[in-house]
């Protein structure tokens, strides 16, 4: 047990370093995410945002460091976690329907070899209704629009009925209606005491969407409640000399009246 990472934190990262081909992508990260937060992970392209999620979930090897889920190694806490990968990470030509994909979220509880039954399908149907595309359950997934595909992924995370949700850019390239539906869903999860970690790109919506913010650029630049963390100084540190982006930052800050 590490005193600086008490077990009441849903996610604690200790001294995490990740490297691809000997080049560090994440360098010596230390992080505590408090329970029941809707946390945004924000930083420039190549800052290691997706890598951070994947390293926490053992999807890529850690060079060093440790990740604790409620004080225990991830391996023992799989049941508490739902993961929504980037939409482009899967093959949308795969011969399955929207309902089939959502049903995959029940596989963990179902266990090895057991077949999908009526109960799992029922759960999947309810989740699809919840994200507003119940009528598309039998559609082959390539017949869905980008926003609908993202909703399918969210429905799948919902049936996992987890405590911590890891989401990799759920708002990327979706229509405005879907973006609104997704944020309502995340806020709903949040209201039920779940912790949500969400890689996010759009600085303009950060302070509206998230109550907790992690600014990342290979290292943690700042992490904490959004009002204190989302400042010009921190953003400058995060985005460095990328001037065109700094204009966006200025715009974003103006929008929130800071």
């Amino acid at each position: 047990m590490r005193p600086e990472h008490p077990p009441e934190y849903p996610l604690a990262v200790h001294d995490l370093t990740v490297a691809y081909h000997r080049k560090p992508v994440l360098w010596d990260l230390d992080l505590n995410v408090p329970e029941g937060k809707l946390a945004g992970i924000v930083g420039p392209n190549g800052a290691g945002k997706s890598t951070l999620l994947k390293a926490c979930l053992d999807l890529i090897p850690k060079t060093s460091g440790e990740v604790l889920i409620y004080g225990k190694p991830y391996e023992e806490q799989r049941d508490l976690i739902a993961y929504v990968p980037q939409r482009e990470s899967v093959d949308w030509d795969f011969p399955v329907s929207a309902l089939d994909v959502v049903t995959m979220g029940t596989y963990r509880k179902l266990g090895w070899f057991k077949r999908v039954g009526r109960q799992q399908k029922q759960q999947a149907h309810e989740a699809l209704e919840q994200v507003g595309i119940g009528h598309l359950a039998d559609r082959q997934i390539s017949q869905l629009s980008g926003g609908q595909q993202q909703r399918v992924f969210l429905a799948r995370a919902l049936v996992q009925d987890a405590e911590i949700y890891f989401m990799d850019e759920p708002f990327a390239a979706v229509d405005a209606a879907t973006e609104q539906a997704i944020i309502e869903l995340l806020q709903n999860l949040n209201a039920r005491g779940k912790t949500v970690l969400c890689v996010h790109h759009d600085l303009a919506t950060v302070s509206r969407y998230f109550d907790h913010l992690i600014l990342l650029n290979m290292r943690i630049v700042a992490s904490g409640p959004t009002p204190e963390t989302f400042t010009r100084e921190n953003l400058q540190k995060t985005y460095g000399g990328k001037l065109n982006l700094l204009d966006d930052v200025a715009e974003a800050l103006k929008n929130v009246g800071r």
Binding site: P85, S89, V90, V96
Partner: peptide
């Protein structure tokens, strides 16, 4: 027949399969 569901999830989304312990 035995691994139908496991093959499907591992082929479609290996990230999800891994996080679910498959």
């Amino acid at each position: 027949g035995f691994f139908y569901k496991e093959f499907t999830i591992a082929s479609f989304d290996s990230g999800l399969a891994e996080t679910q312990g498959f």
